[in-house]
């Protein structure tokens, strides 16, 4: 069919208890401007809520913004639950205050892209688009 069109769908969520969502909103807006469909779920999301939303919305990407310092506690739970729900092909990204020494462990846990202060929205867009293009090529 001539009208087959794939849109990249991204869930943006803030796991944990910090309420600073400016960064998440900036990213959401940038992804929208890059032509993606962004499901914005807001603050104080539990891992279960994030998994449920990702599943129902059938997203390609889950972007997690976290500034509270609880990233090592929460992000591995989310990636694990995604795997348990048969969603290991969902690209998981994290942004926020994440010390360098935690990056390797998070990547090991399945957080594919980690964007800390200073990262540009364009880097995030490029990362998503490149990853999606690779996935499609498989």
């Amino acid at each position: 069919m001539t009208q087959f069109e794939q849109k990249i769908r991204v869930l943006i969520a803030k796991p944990g208890l910090d309420g600073h969502d400016r960064g998440a909103k900036v990213v959401a807006r940038a992804l929208r401007d890059a032509g993606m469909e962004v499901i914005y779920t807001g603050i104080r999301q539990t891992p279960e809520m994030i998994i449920e939303s990702s599943l129902q919305e059938d997203v390609d990407v889950v972007g997690l913004s976290i500034l509270s310092g609880a990233h090592m506690a929460l992000l591995p739970i989310i990636t694990q639950q995604l795997r348990e729900n048969d969603m290991e092909d969902v690209l998981v990204l994290a942004g926020g205050i994440i010390p360098d020494e935690d990056v390797a462990a998070l990547q090991e846990a399945g957080v594919k892209g980690i964007f800390t202060p200073g990262a540009s929205t364009q880097e995030i867009i490029d990362f998503i688009q490149t990853s999606m293009a690779q996935k499609e090529a498989l």
Binding site: R29, L31, R32, A34, M36, I39, Y40, G42
Partner: peptide, 8 residues
Amino acid sequence: GAILGDRI
């Protein structure tokens, strides 16, 4: 693109 915010 779109921002889908109704789940909030």
